[in-house]
Amino acid sequence: GGAAPPVVARAGNVTRIAPPGQTYGALSPLPIAALRLEPEVAAQLGRLGLRRVGDLLGQPRAGLARRFGRGLVMRMDQAMGSAPEPVSPARSPEHFAVRMTLPDPIGLVEDVMAAVDRLLPRLCKTLKDKGKGARRVMLQAYRSDHAVEAVEVGLARPSHDPQRIRPLLEMKVDEIDAGFGIDMLRLVAVQVEPVHDAMAVGHLQAGAAVQARLNNANALDDLIGRLGARVGLDAIRRIQPADSNIPEKSQKVLAAAWSKPHEGPWPKPSNPRPLLLWHPEPVHAPATPRLPKTFRWRGRDLVRQRALGPERIAPEWWLDDPNWRSGTRDYWVTDTEDGQRLWLFYAHGGAMSPGWFCHGSFA
């Protein structure tokens, strides 16, 4: 326990201990990630242009605490040596593995799965007793010629249920080359996470609704796991709404296995948004803010019929986004005589020349 030495700062794999009186100079050039902040806080600071520890040390503490929480100020105090940071010895990592030595070498998929059916419940019981669930499970096959074959599967959610892990292993077992026979199998939970069994409580009707949602979630997780066994979990994505007025940033793409589904309906935009969105395409029209009656887009001459707007969207001033160097945009929902409904905007010009662009279509 107690306060740290004058300064102990970690950046990457380098550990530096600053001499007394040189704490500020040693910390200032380090990235803010060296303070071990929450990723969300570090991202917010980066968007505001605060990327080095020295950028923070010169800011008013009360303002930092009010906007980013006391955790940021505490990390700064710990780095400067003015706040204690007790260090406890690391606990030995838990190891979850079971194995089976076979009396005679085996080579058939059915025989391997029969052995898995004996190993998997043992592994899952150990995980359950520790309140853990497997996220990645490896099956190792030790051949009689001393070679080792291995397959690995991933789950969308941690689980200690054999019925959810077995189908994934069965999909991968045929990738094992048994050679002249397998004489030992080993099943390892190579990545585990805490897991909590959800229980339906309250009235019977409410409990049934909760159980139905759990069943749907489990079915989706199982589907993600099965697809991941074929194409890899990182290849399966889901789209989530994002809190941004910038059209291109109104949603975010996340790995399905490492994120939770969005709950409830998607937030409705304050103004209409197109069904299809693409990179802004130039529209040939006079470079004035007034919506043109006729314009040329994608090699076709179009005539405006009706229009709704303008909706003004300004770029994020704290970011240098190459896609928004044309400055503030005025968006119009524009109907044309040939039946199209397009999303046009006039860029007022920033680092680029002003002009008209087409950003999407409502049909």
Rank of each mutant, 00 (worst) to 15 (best):
G1L: 08
A4P: 09
P6A: 15
T15F: 11
T15K: 00
I17E: 10
P20V: 06
P29F: 03
P31Y: 11
L37Q: 10
P60R: 04
G63M: 05
R70G: 13
L72S: 04
Q78G: 04
G81W: 00
S82I: 13
R91Q: 12
P93S: 08
P93R: 09
V98K: 11
P103M: 01
G107P: 07
E110S: 15
K125M: 05
T126F: 02
K130L: 03
K132Y: 06
K132P: 05
A141K: 02
A141Y: 09
A141C: 13
D145L: 08
H146P: 04
H146W: 09
E149T: 01
A150D: 10
A150H: 11
L168Q: 14
E170Y: 02
M171G: 10
D177H: 09
I182H: 06
M184C: 14
L185P: 03
Q191Y: 05
E193P: 00
H196L: 14
G202D: 12
H203S: 15
A206C: 00
N218V: 10
A219V: 04
G228E: 06
R230Q: 12
V231F: 09
G232M: 06
I236F: 04
I239Q: 07
A242G: 07
P247Q: 03
E248V: 05
V253D: 07
A255D: 14
S259Y: 03
K260R: 10
K260D: 13
S270I: 01
P274C: 07
L276E: 12
L276M: 11
W278G: 08
E281F: 03
V283E: 12
A285D: 09
P286T: 00
K293G: 04
F295C: 13
R296S: 15
R298M: 03
Q305H: 01
Q305D: 12
P310K: 10
R312S: 04
P322S: 02
R325K: 14
V333Q: 13
Y346Q: 04
G350C: 07
A351W: 05
W356I: 01
